[in-house]
Design a protein around this nucleic acid. Sequence first.
RNA 1: GCCGGUGUAGCUCAGACUGGCUAGAGCGAAUCCUUCGUAAGGAUUAGGCCGGGGGUUCAAAUCCCCCCACCGGCUCCA
Length: 649
Amino acid sequence: MSQDANSEHDDIAVVLPDGSELHVERGSTVEDVAYEIGPGLGSDTVAGRIDGELVAKEQPVTEDGARIEIVTDGADDYLEVMRHSAAHCLAQAVERLYDDVQLAIGPPTDEGFYYDFDDLDIDESDLGEIEAEMEAIIEADYDIEREEVSVDEARERLADQEYKLELLEEFAENGETVTFYSQDEWEDLCAGPHVESTGEIGAVKLEEIAAAYWRGDEANPMQTRVYGTAFEDESDLEEYLERKREAEKRDHRKIGNEMNLFSIQDVTGPGLPLYHPPGKTILRELESFVEDLNLDAGYEYVETPHVFKTDLWQESGHYENYQDDMFIFDVGDDEYGLKPMNCPGHATIFDDSSWSYRDLPIRYAENGKVYRKEQRGELSGLSRVWAFTIDDGHLFVRPEGIKSEVEQIMDMIDEVLSTFNLDYDVALATRPEKSVGSDEIWEKAESQLESVLDARDEEYDIEPGDGAFYGPKIDFAFEDAIGRRWDGPTVQLDFNMPERFDLSYVGKDNEEHQPVMIHRALYGSYERFFMVLIEHFEGNFPPWLAPEQVRILPISDENKGYAYRVRNEFDEFRAEVDDRDSTLERKIRAAHDDRVPYQIIVGDNEEEDGDISVRDRSESQEHGVEIDEFRDHLRTEVDQRRSAPTFLK
RNA sequence: GCCGGUGUAGCUCAGACUGGCUAGAGCGAAUCCUUCGUAAGGAUUAGGCCGGGGGUUCAAAUCCCCCCACCGGCUCCA
């Protein structure tokens, strides 16, 4: 923040978002720059970004070549600024209502904001009162004033705020002044930026209370964190709350329970899911889908045990690098470990034979169950577990063969994601600082991955330094039905494992060469992917996955016989007859509740004509359908793995 | 692991603050009545180590202590 006195009067060039340059006096504020661009923009300026960092409009620009963005009312960044101000209102409200509260920090987040307090003893029932006070503060429309204050004066003002003083001492190292923001009787040490007045905060809602360590470090005291969110108006807030309710409705733990898909029970231990028949039915379909893809692509299935002697884990490096996440135990005089990854087993299989360059690539596949001892508090439903299954594949290829193999894998991943109608982004993660392998081979591998991506006209981000220590990788992030992003499929090159296991093949030159290993997963893990699918479809699985594909509903007892005869016509499917003694309305309701894709209704009319009525979850219905016609359609739909029922579309 | 919350029938929940009859309700299930034409027809019955263990008390789902599990949070630097 301090400026070099000699450079105060020279000009610097700033770079605007459209790439153009603007010459301004060094030390001009963000607001000055905005006025240079146009007076209208200048007066609308709320805050700015300098080289990506959100700053107050009063922030001077000192660096030549700085990238400047202007934040105005209505911009995406404006929401972040406003939420920061909302956090201030929260702290002000709390200080009005409770005595001797220690303030910590209160930043905006992706979804809202929070403020951390110490010496504050409240529970969720107090949130209503605090929120009401915040609304009063917003209603009062206090001006939010920015003030530059010397460090010494700041020390005096913050005399009874221990955490703020701690922060102040750090900021004091960077300059001799700090900034305060105030509104009415309340003030806070804060870099900003903020909106002009509290009245600009449109709609706020306090959501929950949680605990957090001061500065996220568990050695520090624990504080009371209040989470809230703010929007420009009530309708945006309502939309956000609706989205949250939607996500809650789709919660795979709730739907998994309702549909009897899986359970995680006390007796069996945490993070160890049990799959019930309907859940395993879905998993088997998912398994057979990748199995088809793998076999078509020339993969060979292998199988390895769940546990190995730690000798193997020492050879692979897991013992050294991954031990904390492994289940390790003694058996007699030997030490064993549950496998956290499948690659060492596969490498060991490869190493058991000798190979010619003509044999490569070798492609091994396994639905391999692995065990990773995650922190207890991190476990959650199927999204974070101790035991999970990877649709794993390991390829042993010649360096010049990388490109065509990666291409093939990307085709397979595209096939998988498009089958579920999932859009995705691709990112290339390159060499991290700590890594193994020669420069030459890294360069070659990265350029091969790049050329694959370029050749496919794939748009991709480069994530520098984000690769695995053993090789670069391509990650796929896909988006579910309500816009959430998930990581799953991945292709990773590995120069480390072949080295550690001393893998080799004999080349054309009759010399030994080291193959490159490729790790790949199309789903990622079955558990994670299953979870995403449950939430993506909200349990309304497409016919090829649905545990019960068709339910036949006889209208009265008289039609039960015909219902079973129809059922026999659907032998190749998962079809049931609802022969309970209840009304048609009730049977239809039950079929909906059970999320069965198709209902076949049979009464006297159908029985006389020898046909059926077909209904789906969207309540569409067609009467007088020939049994063959529907059965052929359903067979096609299942064989093609269509992502939704289409008979009545 | 740490902080807060939660744990009662297959499911969703009441009862707990202020200890006291036999722990309730709805859904689901079973049985019976009804034989039904498009999202809940009626009746009856069964179903509970009130998460586990220990303690206080004449008496504990309820109060105290310990443990377990689940949910949320613990990265996003005034």
